[in-house]
Nucleic acid binder design. Structure first.
Ligand SMILES: [Mn+2]
Ligand SMILES: [Mn+2]
Ligand SMILES: [Zn+2]
Ligand SMILES: [Zn+2]
Lengths: 141, 141
DNA sequence: TTCAAAAGTTGGAATCGTTCTAAACAGTCG
DNA sequence: CGACTGTTTAGAACGATTCCAACTTTTGAA
């Protein structure tokens, strides 16, 4: 976390208490929170926090390449502080999002009809299924 | 197209002129249109068409499993009348969406830490790149 | 054919996530 | 102490999508 702070300071980002709280909340967070998740959590320590600040900070972080925006949920954006390339598993019952740290690129050859019309440089896989939590619930029902 | 119409009639869907026009527009359409694309195109023949009808019809089709909703574009939903499982290529410059009809499932083994917490049943890959059109533009600039 | 129930259409209002705005604030430097 | 710069805030604005209530069409039974 200290490293993080240094990094942001070096990049010329002013570190306000609100931003620090947001950074702290995101640091190591693997839950893929939405702006509202962040807002609600950070508001506890900073009751005057506004949504604008959350969105502003997120945008700054995304521009700096420190946070990724996930287009996984049609209803709202999710944010991922882990910017190493990776994929996701989504529980179709509860929406829980998990990480998949495997690079499948070598195995994803594209047919010629595609490479003819696109120069592909990256990929992202969404796996869909049911999480153990939801599975357990279903059985006990 | 006639087959289509029969299919919908059998499923107990009322076939109004607006719906027929929407179905016709979607039939064989590989452009992954948005609700607005559909609205604009169909409005030419049915000037009184409302967005509500477009959304209602799309929802009915999605519920029937005849159309897929794509969560690829953070700004708006795209719709795909091709419901056979397949993947997509997205041009990061112009947003153009292409199809990739390859089943990679066999090659996408998941690490045990994932299978321990999720029962995965399907996957969808987004490939990102630049389409030839945009590439040409860039070079001539 | 006729007719009424059920389902669909419409324009506009409402909703919801996200972005924008203008005014108040805070830290920095002279 | 100002002036400067970037930040925070509340609330307005926005754009995609959903909802609503009144009206119209489709459909199938009589
Ligand atoms: Mn992740
Ligand atoms: Mn497609
Ligand atoms: Zn779940
Ligand atoms: Zn392009």
């Amino acid at each position: 976390m200290q490293k993080q702070i240094e990094k942001y300071r070096k990049k010329g980002m002013k570190l306000t208490p609100q931003r620090l709280a947001i950074l702290e909340y995101l640091d190591g967070n693997t839950a893929h929170p939405t702006a509202e998740d962040i807002y609600r959590a950070v508001k506890k320590k900073h009751p005057t926090l506004s949504f604008a600040t959350v969105y502003n900070t997120l945008q700054a972080l995304v521009n700096m390449g420190e946070v990724m925006e996930l287009t996984i949920d049609p209803e709202r954006k999710h944010f991922d502080p882990d910017t190493t390339p990776h994929h996701h598993v989504i529980c179709t019952r509860c929406g829980r999002i998990g990480d998949v740290f495997v690079d499948y690129s070598r195995r994803l050859e594209l047919p010629e009809e595609v490479t003819r019309s696109f120069t592909v440089t990256s990929n992202h896989i969404d796996f869909y299924g049911v999480c153990k939590n939801c599975e357990r619930k279903r059985r006990t029902k």
